[in-house]
Design a protein around this nucleic acid. Sequence first.
DNA 1: ACCTGAACACCGTTCAAGT
DNA 2: ACCTGAACACCGTTCAAGT
Lengths: 202, 202
Amino acid sequence: MARRSEHSLEEIKEMVLDAAQSTVIEEGVGALKVRKIALDIGYTVGSIYMVFDNMADLITHVKGRTLDDIAAELNAVDANGPPEHCILALARAYVNFASRHFNRWRMIFEPRSADDPPLPGWYQQKIDALFNVLEVQIARLALSLPREEAKRAARALWGGIHGVCWLSLTGKLDAVGVKDVENTLVLLVESFLRGWSAAPDS
Amino acid sequence: MARRSEHSLEEIKEMVLDAAQSTVIEEGVGALKVRKIALDIGYTVGSIYMVFDNMADLITHVKGRTLDDIAAELNAVDANGPPEHCILALARAYVNFASRHFNRWRMIFEPRSADDPPLPGWYQQKIDALFNVLEVQIARLALSLPREEAKRAARALWGGIHGVCWLSLTGKLDAVGVKDVENTLVLLVESFLRGWSAAPDS
DNA sequence: ACCTGAACACCGTTCAAGT
DNA sequence: ACCTGAACACCGTTCAAGT
């Protein structure tokens, strides 16, 4: 053993990420352990630390992948129809991803401990990219409004969409199935948009 | 040592809960350890297991206390004014609690591992009580509507309020301070209510 | 009956030692 | 240079032993 050189460091990094993601999908973040990952990829614990600083770093990268996948699905929805339709489609795409990839999605919002290092810049950029998709549609909806207004509306609506998904899918709301969540989402989005465009100051 | 009988089991239970809550407030859930709690209350690890089944059970009880405190603050807002005002006040009360008791609030939404036992009935009842406060106001707003419609609207709005708080306070949204979150919340609630009451089928 | 504290299994992380 | 695996500190949980 030692000095096997069967894989490059980049390859090992990918293998670790793949194995970690599989575990999250099947058993949730709680089941993510270095020893298990090492076993899964056929290396030993020490090797994990050649490619990641520590567990928190590894987890951040798994989350990064999830953010990329969400972004891909959001960007796959048609962005050229009527803005209201696009926004509804984005909301549906979001809840669909969340329900299909429940453990990975839920993991993104796990509270981080207060003392571990702040999120790296590349991670924050991935989050911003997600917000931007909705913001663009909101901006299309109200071209005359200052950019700041659109931004605030996008934040309110994204927050709303996410909150409905969260409370529904984690069972804090007694919603039955995905269809039920979708209906609640549609109610939120349609009501918000109708009320927003009818605002006294717009 | 042993057989000290300085405190009843009920007293010890309260001491454990108090100590655990203090740790959560100061350092977050991540810092919650049996050995630390034991040290804080002047007993040893084994004693904790006289009054709680395990760590998960203890955490559920700490969360239960937080739910009670939130309920108390929501029930303290005037429920007899115009429903729109009441709902806005509830939203403000919620975000205020969340920002003042950030670690305790955030702890409620920590993802539980997939395999640990389901939440006990008394816990679910506390959650239902929270939802009910908003539902009552929504129902006042649309007396002629069937109860199911009010329920769905309450779920959508609660989800929305919570989502804005979550994304804002945990920094997923680039909101600056509580005042900024409050403004976003007001935008969401006012737009939703305006749009909801103007719905084509109401 | 109440409480202790050593023991156990498991965890993330490090690093001297091997090739 | 790459990789191992024993060692370390720490974790939740149990339970025989003490009074």
